[in-house]
Design a binder for these strands. Structure first.
Length: 418
DNA sequence: AGCATGCCTGCATG
DNA sequence: ACATGCAGGCATG
């Protein structure tokens, strides 16, 4: 491969409260970022974008393949060769930096005590403005799956069907494959061999529909016009869709239900009011927002929409962002973040984990009393690992349960039906 | 309309 | 060892 052209590191002034890439790039929005040392890398619109962050700035650089027509221009006014490209605009767009995170966090905290309680440890989470097609395929892969495995699958897709962009160290970076590249029976079969399971046919079939049965730029035409997309440029197109229409259009595809459709709306089409309700958000709605606890393990369509409507009502037009903050705060991999100072922080953390335990026991309590002891045993283990070792071993599980259960009954609120 | 079931795989748990 | 449950759902009946 010919030598790549690499820009200098540049930087944008951004506080960690406005953006924390460590959290935002790992919380299950994007599945392609790779961390090498303290730098994050991903191929994006024809280049490898590299990022690193300190307490005052976001640093970025771009690595372009030398073979393609270069986007670099040389400033005629400067003697020294000055690299000018669109990477700054791309970074601003990708992280939706035009929004003020602190102001929005404040707004959500004012209107929602639960958010006020949970959010302070999870500042700097932002909704990414990702490529719609990549978002669609990523979240088709996400069903019955976990972030680690989704990331591996997406990596395989790129390796096998995406053109090579370049390398960072030993690591090869491929562009995300196009719909044309992913359609067809052979892709289906190959993806099954690559352990995609039943998602293989969803991907191949969705790729076929998008490339053959929809107009060019159909997917992009569903973008929120207030935040036009990147890549092929904005199309003064056909639909001028609103959120509901975009959501319904996506549901026509194969392997796309309401949750996946909302993920694409939120992170790929910039519809801030889209609230993807997965099992975790459903739990949160039941635990912290008085939604009825149901015996059946599946979420009905009407319940799906009423949960979204509730969050749109209390959080407003960026409800999906607020949802993402609470979602991340609830993720196991983030719930016990390692902290530098053990003592005062551990105490605080302990208190919070106890609260979580109380809430989850409350949830369990109504559903299946016989699993309570097992749950509490599990919770204790988690608390031990979260706080770094010690626990109140002189308190029996039964004693701790008794101290938790009555309070949970007292705090039970009237059930919200439908 | 709401609900149960099967679907692929990888991993943790007992 | 082996079974079972479950992980950021969806399509089907």
């Amino acid at each position: 491969m010919p030598a790549a052209r690499v820009s200098e590191w540049r930087k944008l002034p951004v506080s960690l409260t406005e953006l924390c890439i460590e959290t935002t790039l790992r919380c299950g929005q994007s599945f392609r970022w790779r961390k090498l040392g303290d730098e994050w890398h991903m191929s994006l619109y024809g280049r490898i974008l590299s990022l690193k962050q300190d307490s005052t700035h976001l640093h970025y650089k771009a690595t372009w393949p030398a073979a393609t027509s270069t986007p670099f221009t040389t400033s005629t006014s400067a003697k020294e060769e000055t690299v000018v490209d669109d990477t700054e605009e791309l970074v601003k767009h990708y992280f939706s930096l035009k929004h003020n995170a602190a102001a929005l966090y404040n707004q959500w905290s004012q209107s929602d005590p639960n958010f006020r309680k949970k959010a302070p440890k999870f500042t700097g989470i932002r909704i990414l403005s990702q490529d719609a097609w990549e978002t669609l395929i990523g979240f088709i892969c996400s069903s019955n799956n976990n972030i680690s495995r989704i990331s591996q699958m997406i990596h395989k897709l790129c390796e096998n069907y995406g053109p090579l962009i370049g390398n960072i160290g030993d690591e090869a970076f491929h562009e995300f494959p196009t719909p044309e590249a992913l359609k067809g029976k052979e892709v289906d079969a190959h993806l099954r061999d690559l352990a995609f399971g039943y998602r293989a046919k969803y991907i191949a079939e969705t790729a076929r529909i998008v490339s053959e049965e929809r107009p060019t730029d159909w997917l992009e035409s569903l973008t929120n016009p207030n935040n036009p997309g990147w890549g092929t440029g904005h199309r003064s197109g056909l639909l001028r869709a609103n959120y509901k229409e975009a959501h319904e259009q996506l549901l026509q595809l194969v392997g796309v239900g309401p949750k996946v459709a909302d993920c694409v709306c939120l992170m790929g089409l910039s519809w801030g009011e889209a609230v993807p309700v997965d099992t975790h958000i459903w739990q949160i709605a039941q635990r912290d927002y008085s939604f009825a606890r149901v015996k059946s393990s599946s979420l009905s369509k009407s319940m799906y929409h009423s949960i979204g409507d509730h969050f749109r009502r209390i959080w407003g037009d960026q409800a999906g962002w607020a949802q993402s903050v609470l979602f991340t705060a609830n993720l196991k991999s983030f719930s016990a973040r390692p902290k530098a100072e053990p003592d005062p922080v551990a105490v605080k953390l302990q208190a919070e984990v106890c609260e979580t335990v109380t809430g989850e026991v409350e949830t369990k309590y109504k559903v299946e009393e016989d699993t309570l002891v097992g749950s509490m045993r599990q919770f204790r283990k988690r608390r031990v690992s979260a706080t770094g070792g010690t626990d109140l071993e002189n308190t029996t599980i039964e004693q701790e349960l008794i101290s938790v259960a009555p309070r949970s009954r007292k705090r039970r609120r009237p059930l919200r039906l439908s």
